[in-house]
Nucleic acid binder design. Structure first.
Lengths: 226, 226
DNA sequence: CGACTGCTTGATGTTGCTCAACGTGCGTGG
DNA sequence: CCACGCACGTTGAGCAACATCAAGCAGTCG
């Protein structure tokens, strides 16, 4: 945590880029930057959402914890706002957000944020844009999980890390088998089974958390067909 | 379809209520009201989203049609906007919206809509509010469907019609067994089975599409526990 | 070294999908 | 008017997918 100079921030969101120097000064006065280590909780489910959280750098999981089950909704990388709908729709966070890597997050004063929406149409429009894209992605996710079966969803997960996060065929899985299961809506056992199945079929190579994609085309087919 | 006088409209959205007389005049010039009968398609999946749709009255289903499967995402009643995220996030509709009852819909000029966001902070804020609430509901839905099993999801469906739509324990189901299945992520056979099971257990009474809820408490338990 | 955590693999039971058969009501065309 | 197709609803039997349970293994930390 420390003194922030928003004006000189290199990670401004599209919305924040529309702000004037004066407005950025306003933002600064109610802005606290915090760093998180892997495993640390950034936003806590059922906690009050008193600030707007902006993920400047790092990778996080958005998850919902039931007393019995834990479900990972999405994995997102910076830059992005976290939990805007909770900020506005409901004062209580509907889910937790936990760091998977070292993360840097700015907590912004919600009142200042509202003020910008009221006074700066460009800012408001960009927020609406971000929320729209977000909702469409959630929508997609939801559908995918609903009508595919386990192998397809695990394939999805692997392709997600490939295309959306690392952009290279070899990477270190940032989550445990347990969490991969939670992400795909299954158990750690099944997640494990499907991974070794893919490995045996020569679709991927897996050693511990190190994944190499060998047959992307087939992986896509599995993801598509179910 | 016909000439509209937005100023005198009794069904204005919270956002539209923030508009001045002059702004409402602007809205009017690009506004077309259309009526739909049950079964008629209001928004077509994969079609271009050229207008903002505002549902003034009636009941609709939001559904996604795959060549193979059809999935009902939500059932919504007026008043509400339909598909705002598609209007902004992506020019193509991600889903269809179909009338279940007689519906009255206003199609608004998207440019005028954008203009209001830019120029009227109160309007923009109300749109953000509506989108936030929407997303949180979708979120909830998603989770429910993911971790309950069939009986629980059918129970959910019945309780939804009870609490959110009709507010009385006896009502006429506005959808077929097929669609109830699609809503609960199962087949028409299973939807049918679960309904008769509930009937036999004295939890509900069902005759054709006429439903009476007899043991709401138990129904809630089933919905909760899975 | 023992306790612990994360991972893997196999055996077993349950859930719910698929398929098939049959009944009903409705609209169409001969 | 009846015959026919068609959508919808119900019920039963078999089977595939998946969760659960159980056991064992490797790595790590005190």
């Amino acid at each position: 945590m420390g003194k922030i100079i928003c004006k000189q921030c290199d990670f401004k969101s599209p919305a924040a880029q529309t702000l004037s120097e004066m407005e950025l000064d306003g933002l600064e006065s109610g802005c606290a930057k915090t760093n998180f280590k892997p495993g640390e909780i950034i936003i806590k489910q059922n906690g009050l959402s008193t600030n707007v959280a902006y993920l400047k750098s790092g990778l996080v999981k958005v998850h919902f914890s039931d007393p019995l089950k834990e479900r990972i909704m999405r994995i997102i990388k910076a830059p992005t706002y976290l939990g805007l709908p909770s900020n506005f729709g409901n004062k209580v966070n509907q889910f937790s957000v936990t760091a998977l890597e070292n993360c840097s997050v700015c907590f912004l004063d919600i009142a200042a944020f509202k003020k910008f929406i009221y006074e700066n149409g460009d800012f408001a429009y960009n927020i609406i844009l971000e929320m729209s894209k977000n909702e469409l992605k959630n929508f997609d996710n939801c559908l995918n999980n609903a009508q595919k079966q386990t192998t397809g969803r695990i394939a999805d997960g692997i392709l997600f890390f490939y295309h959306e996060i690392y952009n290279r065929p070899t990477f270190i899985l940032p989550i445990s088998r347990q969490d991969l299961g939670n992400l795909a809506g299954t158990t750690r056992e099944n997640a494990s089974r499907v991974l070794t199945q893919f490995h045996n079929e020569g679709i991927i190579s897996i050693a511990g958390k190190k994944v190499t994609i060998l047959n992307e085309k087939l992986l896509h087919q599995i993801s598509e067909k179910g």
